[in-house]
Simulated assay, not measured.
Amino acid sequence: MPLPNDEKVVALANDLLQMFDQLFGLHPGFRAAHAKGLMLTGSFTPSARARSLTRAAHIQRDSTPVTVRFSNSTGLPQIPDNVGDANPRGLAIRFHLAEHVHTDIVSHSTNGFPTRDGYEFLDFLRAAAASGPDVPSPKPIEQFLGTHPAALAFVQAPKPFPASLARETYYAVTAFAFTNAEGHTRYGRYIITPGQGNEYLTPEQVAAIGENYHYDELAQRVASQPIRFHLRVQLAEPGDAVDDATLHWPESREVLDLGMLELTAVLPDSLAQQKQIIFDPIPRLDGIEPSADPLLELRAAIYLLSGRRRRSA
Rank of each mutant, 00 (worst) to 15 (best):
F229W: 12
L218W: 14
A208H: 11
I192T: 10
Y170K: 09
Q205F: 03
V206D: 06
L231V: 08
A172R: 08
D240I: 01
G183A: 04
Q196H: 08
E204T: 07
D240H: 04
P238N: 10
Y200A: 07
Y215M: 07
D216Y: 11
T179V: 07
E168Q: 14
T185Y: 15
E199N: 12
L218Q: 03
R232K: 15
L231Q: 07
F229R: 08
E237K: 09
R167H: 12
A219K: 06
I191E: 10
F178M: 09
Y215N: 04
P194Q: 05
E237L: 14
R221H: 09
V222I: 13
Y187Q: 07
E211S: 10
T193Q: 06
E211C: 11
G210H: 01
R228Q: 14
Y171F: 14
E204C: 05
L201P: 00
Y170V: 07
H214P: 00
Q225K: 11
T202P: 01
R189Q: 04
E204H: 11
V233A: 01
P194S: 04
Y215E: 04
I192F: 03
T185M: 15
N198M: 12
E217G: 02
Y200F: 13
P194L: 04
V173A: 09
A245N: 02
A223P: 10
D216Q: 14
T246A: 06
I191A: 01
Q220Y: 10
T169I: 07
N198E: 15
V242C: 07
A223F: 12
Q205S: 12
V173Y: 01
A175Y: 00
E211D: 15
L231P: 11
S224Q: 13
E204Q: 09
L201I: 05
H184W: 11
Q225E: 14
P203W: 09
A241L: 01
V222A: 06
G210W: 04
R221D: 11
T246G: 01
D243T: 00
L231Y: 02
S224N: 14
